[in-house]
């Protein structure tokens, strides 16, 4: 008998022996909306920034592509002559970031087409985030051939570009609306990232920057395309 049938049979036998231990009373008073007060865009933005800052992340709210370019230039200049990871993401292309990086003279690398050991040397990674969750200050990274995992992961600094209208008040709203916002939750692997990587494994002392980024900077922008 295969492991599958052994396990299933054991479960079915156990359930027959003790078919239903559920209480009759099923009203628990649980209200699935944890943050009913978040309605307006400003509220949502404020909560996102506040919560991400609390866990050591950084946010900038920007209006228009030019503003994005401006602040990115400031950020990238610090990494002149160093390696910066940039995936072949059309949105990053549209925002003119590859061009910007050439101007600032950083060593731009596409982790998709370079060696792992070289990518691991990077000082910074720039990616888009497909959604944000205000309640926890979380960014949602949906992985695809154009948006690999490593650009957001290998370098000590991760800059994520997040469209303002893609920030949802909480996890439940995100999942409910992801589909209509064009994000197919179950089709692709994804990572929800909240702030820098951290550990408290030695005497509960909080150390930011464990195996992943030490700094997470989220640039929230509204696009010129409307």
């Amino acid at each position: 008998m295969s492991g599958r049938s052994v396990v299933l049979l054991a479960i079915q036998r156990a359930l027959q022996e003790e078919p239903n231990s559920l209480p009759k009373e099923t009203h628990t008073g649980y209200d699935r909306k944890p943050q009913p007060d978040l309605t307006g865009t400003d509220d949502i933005l404020r909560r996102f920034s506040e919560r991400l800052t609390m866990v050591g992340g950084e946010t900038h709210v920007l209006s228009g592509d030019e503003a994005v370019n401006c602040i990115l230039r400031e950020l990238i200049v610090e990494f002149k002559d160093q390696i910066v990871l940039l995936p072949a993401d059309p949105e990053l292309e549209r925002l003119g970031i590859p061009r910007l990086m050439n101007e600032v003279a950083v060593n731009r690398i596409q982790p998709e087409s370079s060696s792992l050991s070289l990518a691991a040397e990077a000082a910074m990674g720039i990616t888009t985030a497909q959604a944000g969750i205000a309640d926890t200050g979380t960014i949602v990274l949906i992985h695809s051939s154009e948006r690999g995992r490593l650009s957001a992961l290998l370098a000590p600094v991760h800059v994520a570009l997040l469209k303002k209208e893609m920030i949802f008040p909480d996890k439940i709203t995100f999942l409910a609306k992801a589909q209509q916002a064009g994000l197919d939750y179950s089709a692709t692997s994804q990572t929800w990232v909240t702030g820098p990587s951290l550990t408290a494994d030695i005497e509960k002392v909080l150390v930011r920057g464990a195996h992943g980024p030490r700094r997470v900077i989220v640039l929230i922008y509204s696009t010129d395309q409307g």
Partner: peptide, 24 residues
């Protein structure tokens, strides 16, 4: 567990990477 609102990452293994994906 850790007194956090959410952990630093939640990783959803929805599917294996396609041949066009360079990681995962």
């Amino acid at each position: 567990a850790t007194g956090q609102r959410i952990t630093g990452s939640v990783i959803f293994f929805n599917r294996p990477s396609s041949s066009r994906e360079s990681d995962g």
